[in-house]
Simulated assay, not measured.
Amino acid sequence: MNHQRDALLVLADGWVMEGWGFGARTTAIGEVVFNTGMTGYQEVITDPSYKGQLITFTYPELGNTGINDQDHESERPAARGVICREVAPVASNWRQRHTLADWLRRHGMVGIRGLDTRALVRRLREQGPMNGAVSWDGASAAALLQAVRTAPAMEGLDLATTVSTPVAYQWQRAADGVLDPRLQPAHGAGYRVVAIDFGIKRGILQRLNSHGCDVTVLPATADYDQVMAHGPEGIFLSNGPGDPAAVHGGIALARRLLQQERPVFGICLGCQIIALALGAKTFKLAYGHRGLNHPCGAAGRVEITSQNHGFAVDPDTLPDGVQVHRLNLNDCTVAGLELEGRPIFGIQYHPEASPGPHDADHHFARFTRFMERRRQQSRSDHSSPKC
C-alpha cells in the first residue's frame, strides 16, 4: 500500500487537499459538486447530467458492491472525476463485473480518496460550487490552480448537445419491460412518445416503457417537423447537464411544442426548458440539489425525491396560467410546474429514481393518463355521427 499521499484536489479559491489516487492516472478539471445519496454511485457516475463535474460523495465509503453491467444510466461514465472519503478494498455482489477502481481506470477517469469530505462539503456550501481539479499524474498545485482558474464556468454552457444521441433510435423494451399489467394502455398499442434527449437516463426510458410507452428518442438538435413526423401522442423533454438558458435550440423547439395540444412532460432540465419556453428565467443555485433524499411537496403530500441539478426556475418570472404544483421543502424553490387546463407539466426531480426512492413514479402515470384521455377523445370524435 502506498502510504505517501499522491493525488491532489485543487479548488479555484486556492484550497488544496491531498489524498490517494485511484482509477486512471490523469488530471480532470470541472465544477466540484456534492451528492448526498447513501447508495447508487454507479448510477450517479453514469448520469449524463453530471457532464463536466467532479462529484464529491458525502457517503463515507464507495465501491462495496463493485460495478455491474445492468445499472448504467449511459454507456460510460459521464462525470469527470470522483472525490470520496474511502473506497472499499474488496467489492462483493452477485452482479459485480468490475471493481470501481478498475472500471474508472478502463474509462480513463480519475478518482481521489482519503479526503475529509465533510470539510469539503462545508466549504462548497459556504462558498458555492466552483471549478476544481483532481490530479493523480504528478502535476503541481500551482499549475493545477492556473488551469482551474482559466476553465469555463458552468453558467452559459450548453452541454446537453454534447451528451445527446447523434441519431434517432427506438428504445427497445426488455422482455420484462412492463412490470405491471395495470400500466398497459387501455386502448390498443403502446403510447407513441417522442423523447428529446438532452442527456436522458436509461432509467427514465425503462419507466416510460413500463408505463406502456413506445419511445422514439431524438437528438437535442431535432426540430419541430422531425418531432411531428413520428406522430407522437406525447412528448417528453429529458434531463441533462449544463445551463438550461444556454440550450437555445431546445427552448425554441419547446416553444413550438407547447402551442399544440399533445401532452408534454419534462424532467429536470426538461422542466426548466418548459419554463424558459414560456418566457420565465432560471438562476444558478447556491450549491445545487444532488442526492436521493430531497423532500418535495404540495398541500397534504410530501415526496422524498432523487435530484441532480444546479439551476432552478425563478417563480417570479413565470407567466399567468402557470402553476407551481411542487416546492422543494428544503429551500422552497420550484420543484414542479404545470399549465392550467392543459396536459403540460414538468418536475424538478427524478421520478424514475434509479436507485430510489420511488415516491414520485406516479408522474409517469399522469403523463400516460393525459395521452389516454386524448386517445379516447380522438376515438369519440371519429365515432360521432356526421350531418
Rank of each mutant, 00 (worst) to 15 (best):
P166S: 15
H211G: 14
N64G: 10
A298F: 08
A286C: 13
R301C: 14
T282N: 04
M1I: 09
I204K: 04
P244E: 00
G270R: 04
N330P: 13
T56I: 02
G108C: 06
L329M: 06
M154Y: 09
E338V: 13
C387V: 14
T305E: 04
V90L: 12
H72R: 09
H358N: 14
T36N: 05
G199N: 03
L258E: 05
Q170H: 15
A252P: 11
V313R: 03
D71C: 13
E303A: 15
I274N: 05
F236E: 13
R106G: 10
A189G: 11
V167C: 14
V32Q: 00
A139I: 10
Q259P: 15
L120R: 03
G138K: 03
G63S: 12
D359V: 12
R182M: 03
A365F: 09
F283K: 07
K201S: 08
L278A: 06
T317H: 08
G81A: 03
S238M: 08
E18I: 13
A160C: 08
M17V: 13
N239K: 12
R106S: 12
D47L: 01
G250F: 11
D13T: 02
I273V: 05
N308V: 13
D13N: 04
F236L: 12
G250A: 12
E340P: 11
Y224P: 07
G188N: 09
V247T: 14
K281V: 07
N131I: 05
G240Y: 09
Q272R: 06
G111A: 11
P185K: 06
D47E: 06
C84M: 05
Q170C: 13
H358L: 14
G199E: 03
F22W: 00
G266M: 07
D176W: 04
D381F: 12
F22M: 02
K51E: 07
P232C: 05
P60W: 02
R5M: 10
R192M: 09
R182E: 04
P385T: 10
A254L: 02
E233S: 12
Q170S: 15
I267H: 05
T117K: 00
P77G: 00
G231T: 06
G297Q: 06
R25C: 02
W15D: 14
A246V: 13
C268D: 03
S74H: 11
F198T: 04
P385H: 14
I67E: 03
R255L: 09
V134I: 08
L144R: 03
S164T: 06
F265G: 06
S92D: 15
S384D: 15
P263E: 07
P152R: 02
A141L: 07
H3V: 15
K386V: 12
M17L: 15
V334N: 00
E372R: 08
T46E: 05
W94D: 13
D214I: 10
G300T: 05
D225A: 15
P129V: 14
V82R: 01
R255T: 13
V90H: 11
A28H: 01
I347R: 03
V110E: 01
Q170T: 11
P152C: 09
A335W: 05
A133C: 10
D180H: 10
L62F: 01
A7M: 02
R182V: 02
V148G: 05
L327W: 10
D381N: 10
G128M: 02
Q259S: 11
L62D: 03
I235A: 02
R122K: 09
T333K: 01
G336R: 07
M130H: 03
G291R: 04
R173E: 05
A245E: 05
A175N: 15
